[in-house]
């Protein structure tokens, strides 16, 4: 059971993020929800790469490290990419939030009623 605990916690974190997106009415809180969900997925990606007792996947000049002893390096590269994408999305969402605040004078999404259904 202990071995699965990190994965379960990851899922819980993801659900917290989704919950924030669905239930909150403040734009900033919704954005924070998106970020939490995003980092839960990134964390999951890192967990997938983990190997018990694994070392960081970097070759060194002073030390001989076998590839077998390293954790899987591919997800690390992927997680970096996904963090960058997350950065772009977050920056865009925040810029939108600022502009929306300028138009409506509030962050409350239930008071923005330009669009229906």
């Amino acid at each position: 059971m202990d071995a699965y605990l990190p994965y379960v916690l990851c899922l819980v974190l993801f659900c917290i993020g989704i919950y924030a997106v669905i239930s909150k009415r403040n734009i900033i809180k919704i954005i924070i929800g998106v970020i939490i969900a995003e980092y839960a997925v990134n964390l999951f990606l890192i967990l997938v790469a983990y190997k018990a007792g694994g070392r960081s996947p970097i070759f060194s000049r002073t030390q001989e490290i076998l590839p077998e002893a390293m954790v899987d390096p591919l997800p690390h590269a992927l997680v970096l990419t996904s963090i960058v994408i997350g950065l772009a999305t977050t920056a865009f969402l925040i810029a939108l939030a600022v502009r929306l605040y300028g138009k409506y004078g509030t962050f409350d999404i239930s008071r923005m009623r330009e669009l229906r259904g």
């Binding site: 920056a91 925040i94 810029a95 600022v98 502009r99 605040y101 300028g102």
Partner: peptide, 12 residues
């Protein structure tokens, strides 16, 4: 990105 957010805030 930083400048954009800052100038928006100034604008407001």
């Amino acid at each position: 990105i930083f400048l954009t957010l800052i100038t928006l805030q100034k604008f407001e």
